[in-house]
Amino acid sequence: MAVKFQAQAKRNPQDITLPEKYYAAAIADGEVDLDMLAEQIAYECTVTESDCYAVLLSLERNIIQSLDAGRIVRLGRLGNFQVGLSSEGVDTEEEVNASLITKSRILFRPGKRLRQLLTNLSYKKAS
């Protein structure tokens, strides 16, 4: 399994007169939603109180496998996980290849309730 990427042209925001450079950008290869994850987990374990830990481990394993396959993982109201890439820039689309990728990361886009949490936070300076 592999995460797919494509060349993406970007201008230098500090000097827009410079020519565009091309960067590797991750592209999603399908989606996995909460219902599909629940179905996959149901085949691996039962959901009883004593199995709650096993269910959480199975969820983690399924999220990892889906991200490894380049999919977006949608966890309903919780939010979405996706792989993101950073790469070196090159002058042409044809020059973009996997060796230019310098960093990969897991992006999390929180759902509405989690985003609302940020607006309701209070802050206190540590002493």
Rank of each mutant, 00 (worst) to 15 (best):
L114W: 01
I27A: 06
Y123N: 13
E93A: 13
L107M: 06
V47C: 03
E60A: 06
A69I: 07
V83S: 05
P13N: 01
M1V: 13
G89C: 09
R113S: 12
E60S: 08
L114A: 00
A26T: 04
S122H: 14
S122W: 14
V32F: 07
E20V: 13
I41Y: 00
Y22V: 04
Y43S: 14
I106K: 07
S122Y: 14
Y43C: 06
L117A: 08
D68W: 00
T92W: 13
T46L: 04
N120P: 02
A38K: 08
T102Y: 10
Q6C: 11
F5E: 00
L56I: 08
I106E: 12
S99C: 15
C45T: 07
V83F: 05
A28L: 04
K112I: 07
Q6S: 12
D29Y: 00
E49R: 04
G111N: 04
V55E: 05
K21R: 10
S58W: 00
A98P: 09
L114C: 01
R11E: 15
R11Q: 13
R105M: 15
K125T: 10
S122D: 15
A2V: 05
D33Y: 07
Q6Y: 12
C52P: 00
S87H: 09
I64L: 10
Q8S: 14
G70L: 04
K21A: 02
Y23N: 09
K4D: 05
L59T: 08
Y22T: 06
C45L: 07
P19R: 03
G70E: 11
A98F: 12
S50E: 12
R109A: 14
K21I: 05
R113N: 07
T46H: 01
